[in-house]
Design a binder for these strands. Structure first.
Length: 928
RNA sequence: GCGAGAAUAUCUAAGUGGCCAACAGAGGCAGACUCAAGAUCUGUUCCCGUAGGGGUUCGCAGGUUCGACUCCUGCUUCUCGCACCA
């Protein structure tokens, strides 16, 4: 007999599967699924495992259902992160080296080569493929590619040609977070600090100071009329610099920033902050004012000079108050210019006093500033003499006016500081030129995408709102980069196509990926792809035969049926790909994506998995330690795909025991030779419902639900079945068929064990391609199920009574309800109004004669009907079973169970008081 | 802050108006088998109960209803996304 040895099963299966899942167009109906391909910059952990195992289970399911399934895989290697990694490794960065050497266990000689970024991705791509195979993924590896393959680049160029011609690729300028040391834009993941910081657009209000300007940054240009003074920090070093040919006075830091934002900056001299104090400046809209000293002014915030509006800005109000309390600048009065209900004459003063704030250092100052800012913006109105407009209108008007007439310019700055790059340098805002964008803001393009989304199947359905919102909110996307790996941007070969933008229609490329390897990439002109994917004929196409084969393959597979991905890609990749499909396959509705399945995230021992924090469990280790099937079953069974799941080693271990139990059970019962009993009909009937429910669950991608049915559902039934068998019998020969069905239902989840057991069962070919079990309505036996239900409930009741009374019984009597109670049962069950039905019943002469007994019974039966599930009540009314037959035929079983003689009597004939409580489907039980 | 989702017994988790003291699994406890361990099987796992019953529960506070884990309102807590990047 076969011993349970997962690693032996795995070895067996891998041999058989070597090329089994290479899938070509055939006469069968196709089913094409794909997953967001991985960026292999590190080892796979168990969280990745689920991402690829879910689609594999789905692929295996549909394959058994008789579809021609395509499940390809490739590797996304374009982008900047590995470049950073290789630089850090070259610099011998301890943290990075520890991660790669200790956690990912990269051998030293390989690690040495990681100074070349491509080596990193190639190394891990190979590892991914190895681990994916170890997990039993049924991937067609012939179609594997990486996104820097020359042929793929040609494909991307073709794709972009279409985007460009459709007018979706535009050129512009763009403020980005920028590191002056790395000379690169900085993404969230490259930040040590300030990852929440947003770039905000300030208006610089230009105050005249002698022959120079002092620019102050404000978000509230409309308050210019209320400016009473400027603030300068006496201990800060300012500079006089020629900015675009004019003299400006700003902080040293600001000068550096302005240079990054489209200004020519030449520093002429340094000026101490203290020298500026008490000097006069002027602005046409507020006249001449004085520069006052203030320590709160941050030289790293915008220009390092601040305009003061004490009537509307709490900070300004308090700073001024403090100076005045020290006896200085007594003649300056706040100038209110905005009326906002509930904040008195001078809002800043009102709010500060109401909050009881004593000085500038109070921690509530930021919140208070925000409060006034919002209140005035949403409800405030300028005084009549300043135009009387609502703040939200006036703000833009004044800003425009100042830009036009009074030399105001825009300056970008972060709302939260500091923002620090991983290299340790302060990040600044830089305006990038020659920056290209994908115009996702285009309403017409958005419309196409929304229309397509309406026709797509989204799993789970709740994610639809998120997609809709994303389409709505998407702005132009900067789609070119200066560093990283990738395809050159065709209209500016100094730049690369940004990595999210080069992975949006590659699902189409999979259909031809294995064939295109036969062609020299030099031949791959746009015309070639136009022919393969769009059917556009043109002169002089090379290798026509090969192209025709590719065209045919594309037509067979496309569009894809489902794309799988984790939910964090909704707001970018998953939505982008629809945009791109809509353009590349414009006018070809039948080539647009059909559905998406979105996953939840993975936890490890209750905490988020994170490579950088070391909170990961490598998938390869998991497979080695527990076996591929165990890992698969655990990941599929612990939660539905879209829910978050938690990996815990101790739970995984018990999963392995379950698989072993399953294997052993099948081996034990598969060759049973006994004659079939009544109970076999029950088992067969139950099996049909498990088949139906498992199939339905998998149709809906509910892996957990499917496992519950196919696994525990059948196991529980089998336990009852074996309990019900006569002592000398260990099962009928029909169990062989049950095993065959059972193993096939579980094969998508535990294919290694499945393949092995299939062989043991003498199944034909590979189980991976065996027919999925079909429900056989002929075998559904409602009566048998009902009888067993009655029996099981009665046994349960007997057990619970036995436990309560704690005597050792000498005999058990089961008293069956009389026929008239069955009649009452049927009447009540069918009545629409359960309240008045009792009266109806009592109209009957026979019933009335029974008097109180009948009304009591009617009440009890009403309660009973409420408590019984509909699948019992329904059949009981339509086609009642004979309770006597059920118990008589199970008498042997009952006596065996209870170990005492069992008597079956009619309640009214027994004469026992307790017997009178007998109800339909709930006989009285008398224990003596 | 904005947007989306979630909160059920020791844990995972099913449950969209009466089938609910609440599926299933894991874990715990007890028993059987065994020299023992493991595996397996049986029972038990909110509280009370010597006849199948009763009581109190499904984040918190209210509400709708004959009836709510399920619907509504408010609150609290958690997770995810908020972009120039995989």
């Amino acid at each position: 007999m076969s011993q349970f040895d997962l690693s032996a099963f795995e070895e067996e299966a891998h041999e058989k599967w070597a090329h089994a899942f290479e899938s070509n167009p055939s006469r069968l109906e196709k089913f094409y699924i794909n997953v967001a391909f991985p960026y292999p910059s590190g080892a796979m952990h168990v969280g990745h495992g689920r991402t690829y195992i879910v689609p594999d289970v789905v692929a295996r399911f549909w394959r058994m259902k008789g579809k021609q399934v395509l499940f390809p895989m490739a590797f996304h290697v374009t982008g900047a992160p590995v470049v950073g990694i290789s630089k850090r490794i070259a610099k011998k960065d301890e943290k990075t080296i520890r991660l790669y050497r200790d956690l990912y266990r990269v051998p030293q000689n390989v690690l040495d080569e990681f100074v070349d970024p491509l080596t990193i991705v190639k190394h891990f791509a190979a590892e991914y493929q190895r681990v994916m195979t170890a997990c039993g993924l049924s991937i067609d590896w012939r179609r594997r590619f990486i996104t820097v393959d020359p042929s793929y680049s040609k494909f991307i160029e073709w794709q972009w040609k279409h985007l460009y011609e459709a007018g979706h690729v535009i050129k512009g300028a763009h403020p980005v977070r920028y590191c002056t040391v790395d000379e690169n834009p900085v993404g969230d993941h490259d930040l040590l600090e300030g990852d929440k910081a947003e770039v905000i657009k300030f208006t610089l209000v230009m105050f005249r100071y002698g022959d120079a300007f002092i620019p102050t940054a404000t978000l509230r240009p409309e308050t210019i009329h209320g400016v009473t003074n400027l603030w300068a920090n006496p201990s800060v070093t300012y500079v006089k610099a020629m900015v675009d040919g004019k003299a400006w006075i700003v902080s040293k830091e600001a000068a550096e920033k302005l240079a990054l934002q489209d200004h020519t900056v030449e520093i002429r001299e340094e000026i101490k902050g203290s020298e500026l104090v008490d000097k006069k400046v002027s602005h046409p809209l507020c006249g001449e004012i004085t520069i006052l000293p203030a320590e709160f002014v941050d030289p790293d915030m915008a220009t390092g000079m601040v305009m003061s509006v004490p009537a509307h800005a709490p900070f300004d109000y308090i700073a001024l108050r403090d100076l005045q309390q020290a006896g200085r600048y007594k003649d300056i009065k706040p100038i209110p210019l905005i009326r906002v209900e509930g904040y008195g004459e001078v809002p800043a003063q009102f709010a500060v006093e109401k909050a009881g704030i004593k000085n500038q250092m109070d921690s509530r100052m930021d919140a208070l500033t925000q409060e006034i800012y919002s209140a005035e913006f949403s409800k405030g109105k300028l005084f009549e003499k300043y135009g009387g407009k609502p703040v939200r209108v006036a703000r833009d008007d004044v800003a425009a006016l100042m830009t036009e007439k009074y030399d105001s310019v825009v300056m970008y700055e972060f709302d939260v500081r500091p923002v620090v790059c991983r290299c340790g340098n302060r990040v600044k805002v830089k305006i990038l030129h020659d920056q290209w964008f994908l115009k996702y803001s285009d309403p017409a393009w958005k419309q196409e995408v929304s229309d397509q989304l309406k026709d797509m199947t989204l799993v789970p359905p709740e994610v639809r709102v998120e997609f809709d919102r994303t389409v709505d909110w998407l702005k132009d996307w900067a789609c070119t980069r200066r560093v990283g790996l990738g395809t050159k941007f065709p209209w500016d070969t100094q730049q690369l196509i940004e990595p999210l933008s080069d992975s949006t229609v590659y699902m189409a490329y999979y259909t031809i990926a294995h064939r295109i390897k036969d062609l020299d990439s030099k031949l791959l002109t746009p015309a070639v792809f136009d022919y393969i994917f769009l059917g556009k004929k043109s002169e002089d196409l090379p290798e026509k035969k090969k192209l025709d084969a590719m065209r045919e393959e594309f037509l067979y597979w496309y569009p894809y049926d489902f794309r799988f991905s984790a939910k964090d890609l909704i707001s970018n990749h998953l939505t982008f790909q629809i945009f791109h499909h809509c353009t590349v396959f414009a006018g070809q509705k039948d080539k647009l994506p059909k559905g998406m399945v979105v996953f939840g995230m993975g936890l490890l021992n209750g905490a988020k998995m994170s490579s950088s924090k070391g909170n990961v469990f490598l998938l390869e280790d998991a497979v080695k330690e527990f076996g591929g099937d165990t890992v698969r079953m655990f990941l599929m069974g612990s939660a539905e795909p879209w829910q978050d799941f938690d990996w815990r080693n101790e739970l995984v271990l018990s999963t392995k025991k379950q698989i072993e139990r399953f294997h052993n059970t099948v081996m034990e019962i598969k060759d049973a030779t006994g004659e079939p009993h009544d109970i076999d009909r029950w088992l067969a009937s139950r099996l049909q419902s498990h088949i139906a429910k498992t199939t339905e669950a998998l149709d809906n991608f509910q892996t957990r639900q499917a496992l519950q049915e196919a696994w525990f559902g059948i196991e529980t039934d089998l336990k009852w079945y074996r309990r019900r068998l006569p002592k000398d019998c260990d099962g009928s020969r029909e169990l062989h068929e049950l095993c065959s069905v059972w193993v096939r239902l579980l094969a998508p989840f535990i294919p290694f064990t499945g393949e092995h057991l299939w062989k043991e069962l003498a199944g034909e070919g590979l189980i991976s391609f065996a027919p999925w079990p079909k429900m056989d309505a002929q075998q559904v036996n409602e009566k048998a199920e009902l009888s067993e239900e009655l029996l099981a409930r009665t046994v349960e009741d007997v057990e619970s009574i036995k436990k309560l009374i704690q005597i050792s019984p000498k005999a058990i009597t089961i008293a069956l309800a009389p026929e008239w109670k069955h009649e009452v049962f049927r009447t009540i069950a069918q009545a629409s109004d359960k309240n008045s039905v009792v009266k109806e019943i009592m109209k009957d002469e026979k019933m009335r004669k029974r008097g109180r007994e009948a009304t009591d019974a009617a009440k009890q039966i009403t309660t009973l009907i409420h408590r019984l599930p509909p699948y019992v009540v329904g059949p009981l009314v339509q086609d009642p079973i004979s309770e006597r037959d059920v118990f008589e035929s199970a008498k042997g079983f009952l006596e065996q169970e209870f170990g005492v003689p069992v008597h079956i009597v009619e309640a009214e004939a027994s004469g026992h008081v307790k017997a009178l409580t007998a109800l339909p489907f709930k006989p009285s039980i008398i224990i003596e």
